[in-house]
Design a protein around this nucleic acid. Structure first.
Lengths: 109, 109
DNA sequence: TAATATAGTTACCAATTGGATACTATTGTT
DNA sequence: AACAATAGTATCCAATTGGTAACTATATTA
């Protein structure tokens, strides 16, 4: 992958630059359990539009978080998989999972 | 605090609902080192406008993440502090800090 | 007397994001 | 011959978000 230029000095801001987005975190959540096809992602990301899903996947691929594998078939089959760096987002995901659970215990009905 | 209704079933989505926003994470980052005044936050959140900072602080207060203390002075003095639940966002913050650092090591110039 | 400092609020405008819809390509199926 | 299936792309419109600038209050300071 190509090096990215001008990342912010604060690493938290770097993470936000690459992942500071509802859908991207949910895409990671879904790919943490393994490779998925485009259609599977679309279905499990309830309500995301095709356009938005495609554009997030492209950005994440460019940033080295996922890989895209196209099969020479008709109808098309495209699979998305987390890279090693993408996998390492599991810590962030898990922290968010834990915190959300705690918050719900405390404050939800 | 009042219970919040209709939190999403997935705890990750709950976290995103409350924190899925660049500025909110950075506000937490800044408050993790202790209580801050409005003006201090504004200065350290480089580039945030007064309007946006105010509105994020209000939402976070409503959600039980921070407390707001107004001193009866002129000119006004208002301090913001993380609540206990707000403090517990440290795990999320730290995971993002770690991941950003790793990412920069691998991919930045 | 006028300026300064702080923490806002309000109104308006611009930009970004997101959604809906229609369209494409091609092979296999009915 | 028409249709289904998949992973898109292109276009247009709507909504949300964010920025700028002006305004407020009032005690203290020059």
């Amino acid at each position: 992958m190509q090096a990215i230029e001008n990342l912010p000095p604060c690493p938290v801001e770097t993470t936000l630059l690459l992942m500071g987005d509802k859908w991207k975190v949910l895409i990671v959540r879904d790919l943490l359990s393994g490779t998925k096809r485009f259609g599977e992602l679309k279905k499990s990301l309830n309500g995301i539009s095709q356009k938005v899903l495609t554009s997030h996947l492209r950005t994440m691929e460019k940033n080295g978080l996922i890989t895209r594998k196209v099969y020479a078939q008709v109808p098309p089959k495209v699979e998305y998989t987390l890279t090693e760096v993408g996998q390492s987002l599991k810590q962030v995901h898990d922290a968010m999972l834990d915190w959300g659970s705690i918050y719900k215990l405390k404050y939800s009905k």
